[in-house]
Computed example of a mutant assay.
Amino acid sequence: MNAADLALLLDEANHAPWESVRSALEGVEGQPHPRVGWLVSHLAQTKRDYWTKVAEAAGSPPPPDAAGLTRLMAWEVEQARRLTDAQLARSVTHAGEVFTVSQLLRLNARHTAWHAGQIAALAGRVRSA
Results as ranks from 00 to 15, higher is better:
residue 41 S to K: 14
residue 30 G to K: 12
residue 63 P to I: 00
residue 28 V to C: 07
residue 69 L to C: 04
residue 73 M to I: 01
residue 55 A to W: 05
residue 24 A to M: 07
residue 27 G to S: 10
residue 67 A to G: 02
residue 38 W to K: 09
residue 39 L to Q: 08
residue 41 S to M: 08
residue 57 A to V: 10
residue 60 S to K: 07
residue 62 P to R: 14
residue 31 Q to P: 08
residue 70 T to W: 10
residue 83 L to A: 02
residue 25 L to Y: 08
residue 40 V to T: 13
residue 65 D to W: 06
residue 88 L to K: 05
residue 83 L to D: 00
residue 57 A to W: 05
residue 96 G to T: 12
residue 71 R to T: 14
residue 52 T to Y: 00
residue 55 A to Q: 04
residue 52 T to V: 05
residue 91 S to N: 12
residue 56 E to R: 14
residue 54 V to Q: 02
residue 28 V to Q: 07
residue 88 L to P: 11
residue 83 L to E: 01
residue 80 A to N: 04
residue 54 V to W: 01
residue 23 S to H: 13
residue 59 G to F: 10
residue 48 R to V: 00
residue 78 E to S: 14
residue 40 V to P: 00
residue 52 T to W: 00
residue 44 A to G: 07
residue 72 L to Y: 06
residue 88 L to T: 08
residue 77 V to Y: 05
residue 30 G to T: 09
residue 52 T to Q: 08
residue 93 T to P: 00
residue 37 G to W: 09
residue 61 P to M: 05
residue 87 Q to I: 03
residue 37 G to A: 14
residue 54 V to N: 01
residue 64 P to N: 09
residue 57 A to K: 09
residue 71 R to L: 14
residue 51 W to K: 02
residue 77 V to F: 06
residue 67 A to S: 13
residue 50 Y to F: 15
residue 96 G to H: 11
residue 69 L to G: 00
residue 76 E to D: 15
residue 65 D to A: 15
residue 67 A to E: 15
residue 81 R to M: 06
residue 41 S to A: 13
residue 76 E to F: 09
residue 33 H to A: 12
residue 57 A to P: 08
residue 22 R to N: 10
residue 43 L to T: 02
residue 42 H to I: 08
residue 87 Q to A: 12
residue 90 R to G: 03
residue 50 Y to R: 10
residue 87 Q to L: 03
residue 72 L to A: 03
residue 33 H to V: 02
residue 83 L to I: 03
residue 24 A to K: 04
residue 32 P to N: 07
residue 45 Q to E: 14
residue 74 A to V: 13
residue 92 V to C: 04
residue 23 S to C: 11
residue 89 A to M: 01
residue 66 A to H: 13
residue 94 H to L: 10
residue 37 G to D: 13
residue 59 G to L: 06
residue 74 A to L: 13
residue 48 R to W: 02
residue 27 G to E: 12
